[in-house]
Design a protein around this nucleic acid. Structure first.
Lengths: 162, 162
DNA sequence: CAATATAATTAGTTTGCCTAACAAATTAAA
DNA sequence: TTTAATTTGTTAGGCAAACTAATTATATTG
């Protein structure tokens, strides 16, 4: 077997085994992983001084369909972490922002996550960690462009993700 | 913010974005990803000259619970890709092996996968690909030992995976 | 203004996994 | 040697996270 094929198999193995890791599956502070991800996304969106994110924007950032976002927001609203508000300039749009409680919880969850990744950085070493982040990002690009090419021939743009 | 925290955040970002990549979600040859994974596992198990894998062994290799394996095997059996057979030396055990059709399909699916990873190796470069595989494996170890430590204090062994 | 397009939601489905409860077979104990 | 405990696999049922299709409300355009 060629060296390149062997490397390809090693990579495949590594990805398959890694996919099972539960760093993202565990609930944080009693909220579901998907909810936490949405909270992170909203927090990021609020950093900019533009108005709060719309459902459609969140959908693009998280790369999930609008119904998924609506569902998650309903849950988070019920928990009192986010608020809906109508956009007066386009009353079809719904702006989502964190409540005070939501802000606190999100920050807390973020801390937990970053801390656990602190551990990983210690384990791998600073330089290796950076390299891993870079390589993963490159691999991500490879797969997404490949998928895009396969699913929707000749479509460009919209590569912003959360 | 400290450099280490910044690196931790970069890693976190990289993982979160990568988690969404669909290299594993796409169905292959009309079979569900989870089914294909199981097929790979069985193929691996058959390489050794020991008897065909038992449900419990597959469960350990794939790191899923036995009911999950039973379910998948039921599907694969219905599609005629695998066969159950009783182990005469312990009639509780069920040995799983690929049918001729199953063997063909599995090989084909494997080729598809490896080919797509060929592309990744070309994209990243040989050396970088190897390093990515290594770093992912290390990260995998970090997370699994961490999880093990958190969930079941002081348990060792059984680190073989598929 | 009528037709069409867009934003969000509702309803229902799929995939992948889980836990709980159990039957059958095996092993250990009385 | 029955009885009790354990192991192996299965069934049943459920939950999380995503999807598609259809609906409602609002905007935009011919």
């Amino acid at each position: 077997m060629s060296t390149e094929t062997e490397t390809a198999q090693r990579l495949l193995q590594a990805f398959m085994q890694f996919k099972r890791v539960e760093w993202h599956r565990r609930s944080v502070l009693g909220y579901k992983p998907s909810e936490v991800k949405l909270l992170f996304c909203i927090l990021r969106g609020e950093k900019t001084d533009s108005p709060a994110l719309k459902v459609s924007e969140i959908s693009q950032l998280l790369q999930v369909t609008p119904p998924t976002v609506t569902q998650l927001i309903k849950e988070l609203e019920a928990s009192g972490l986010v608020e809906r508000s109508m956009d007066p300039s386009d009353r079809r749009s719904v702006r989502i922002r964190l409540t005070q409680k939501g802000f606190t919880v999100t920050k807390q969850a973020r801390n937990e996550f970053v801390n656990s990744f602190h551990g990983l950085v210690e384990y791998l070493g600073e330089a290796e960690s950076r390299q891993l982040a870079d390589l993963l990002t490159q691999a991500f690009r490879y797969f997404t462009t490949k998928e895009a090419a396969e699913n929707r021939p000749s479509v460009q743009g919209e590569d912003e993700r959360c």
